[in-house]
Design a protein around this nucleic acid. Structure first.
Length: 437
DNA sequence: TCTGGGGTCCTAGGACCC
DNA sequence: TCTGGGGTCCTAGGACCC
């Protein structure tokens, strides 16, 4: 789903200010309902890519017991029996509606942090009656876009998520809960199961329950050292956040994206290299497009493929290979060439090649903006230190680049130079070409 | 030559999120 | 038969250097 990201984090408490989180109810379903009023008040689900499983459910579908991520083939009976309306996902549409909702939020606060396709953190500093403000915002989103949203308000993001969660489950709050008041938090947190807290997943939930912690208030009161020992700095921050000490910053500017992926499951297992090759080529092509749409180039490309993880009765194989892209690139030709080299290198030598692969993907890492990409000089003989420095100076004078990569066909280890490094240690050895690991 | 401590960088894997 | 896709962050451990 979209552009979700973690928040920049620190252990140093920040200034307390009211943070709201607003999320859309069953977002994909709500989006489909905008254009088809007949979907109101009936069970609706939206499926994942390839129509594999349900990733969004209307309240009516939830009431029928359909779970998040449940495979379509396992709920076929329910779908037929109750006439559940089923949709393939339309991410272009959802992205567009998401942008429009953000525009409404921006009429209600100047500081909006987009967290995911259906969630935004909003700075609610300076409003006298936050609940009333949120209610007006809510009705505006419903009126202008047609999507119901819920709002939680607190002094930290984790607490705001809790408030949002409680508001969504208890109609008494009419979609808005302001938990800036500590006595209200004291009242609410004992009713929130620890597994529902943002940042507490299955594994951590189990560990916490093993030491007798079952609710948000119990986690809030957990000794901080114990929290760190049990769940690292991540859990420590969650505890502080529950105490109302913000550790996750409110961040309006979208951070530079670090990686990118194009992956697909295939219904029919791929058992011959040619089929796999075609899938990888398609993924690499799409990945290059995505890079260019974001104005980025990639420095590392990884190809992976593996057998069906759900078939525990069958032998498993998973292969992956990475390569440096040199020069860094978003060029379709470059990416396909690199991806094919990797796909070939990861192809098993033994009988595993008969297993049948049901998932494959191309991952891109070390992304930088196109205009910041390092200049790569090819066909340079293995240079002496002085030559490298001279080349660096030359390129800096000429292009004003911060980083230069010198590489040649015969060089196993290209050199990367940074303009700000002036000692003989200015070089960083880069991985071997063309395939590492 | 041998030994050892400490710092940095890199990567794989785990956990979590929407 | 049929089980999503796309992200981020943290840690441990190895390589390497001084």
């Amino acid at each position: 789903m979209g552009r979700d990201r973690r928040c920049r984090a620190t252990l140093r408490p920040r200034m307390k200010r009211p943070i709201a989180i607003s999320d859309s109810a069953n977002f994909y379903v709500s989006a489909e309902r905008i254009f088809d009023p007949s979907l109101k008040n009936v069970p609706v689900i939206v499926l994942s890519n390839n129509d594999g499983c349900a990733v969004a459910r209307s309240d009516e579908a939830k009431a029928l017991g359909i779970k998040m991520g449940e495979p379509l083939h396992m709920i076929k009976d329910k779908v037929d029996a109750h006439g559940i309306r089923v949709f393939s996902s339309n991410y272009t549409l959802y992205g567009d509606i998401s942008r429009r909702i953000v525009e409404v939020y921006e009429d209600f606060t100047p500081n909006v942090e987009i967290y995911s396709i259906d969630e935004c953190f909003l700075d609610f500093t300076g409003f006298q009656d936050r609940t009333a403000h949120a209610r007006v915002m809510r009705s505006e989103v419903l009126r202008r876009i047609g999507v119901p949203v819920r709002v939680g308000i607190a002094s930290s993001k984790t607490l705001a998520k809790c408030a949002n969660d409680v508001a969504k489950k208890n109609p008494i709050f009419r979609g808005v809960l302001d938990m800036m008041d500590e006595t209200l938090a004291d009242f609410v947190l004992p009713m929130v199961p620890v597994g529902d807290i943002w940042g507490v997943g299955h594994k951590t939930q189990k560990k916490l329950q093993d030491v007798g912690i079952h609710t948000a208030s119990e986690l809030r009161d957990m000794p901080i050292r114990q929290a760190r020992a049990l769940g690292t700095v991540v859990l420590e921050r969650t505890v502080l956040e529950l105490q109302g000490e913000p550790c996750l910053s409110f961040d309006e500017v979208e951070p530079q994206r670090k990686g990118m992926a194009v992956t697909r499951s295939s219904g029919a297992p791929m058992t011959d290299f040619e089929t796999l090759f075609q899938a990888i080529t398609a993924h690499a092509t799409r990945a290059a497009e995505k890079l260019r749409n974001h104005g980025l180039v990639a420095g590392t490309l990884t190809v992976f493929y593996h057998t069906n993880r759900h078939r525990l009765d069958r032998p498993q194989y998973s292969g992956s290979r990475s390569t440096r892209l040199m020069p860094m690139s978003s060029d379709t030709f470059d990416l396909i060439a690199a991806a094919r080299r990797c796909a070939q290198a990861a192809w098993p030598k033994g009988p595993q090649r008969e297993y049948g692969f049901t998932k494959a993907g191309v991952l891109l890492d070390d992304l930088v903006k196109f205009e910041d990409r390092p200049l790569t000089l090819f066909d340079t003989a293995k240079p002496k230190s002085a030559d490298l420095m001279a080349a660096l100076d030359h390129v800096n004078d000429r292009f004003g680049k911060k980083t230069v990569v010198l590489a040649s066909e015969g060089m196993k280890r290209p050199w990367q130079l940074r303009a700000d490094h002036r000692s003989p240690r200015y070089t960083t050895r880069m991985a071997e070409l063309p395939v590492v690991r």
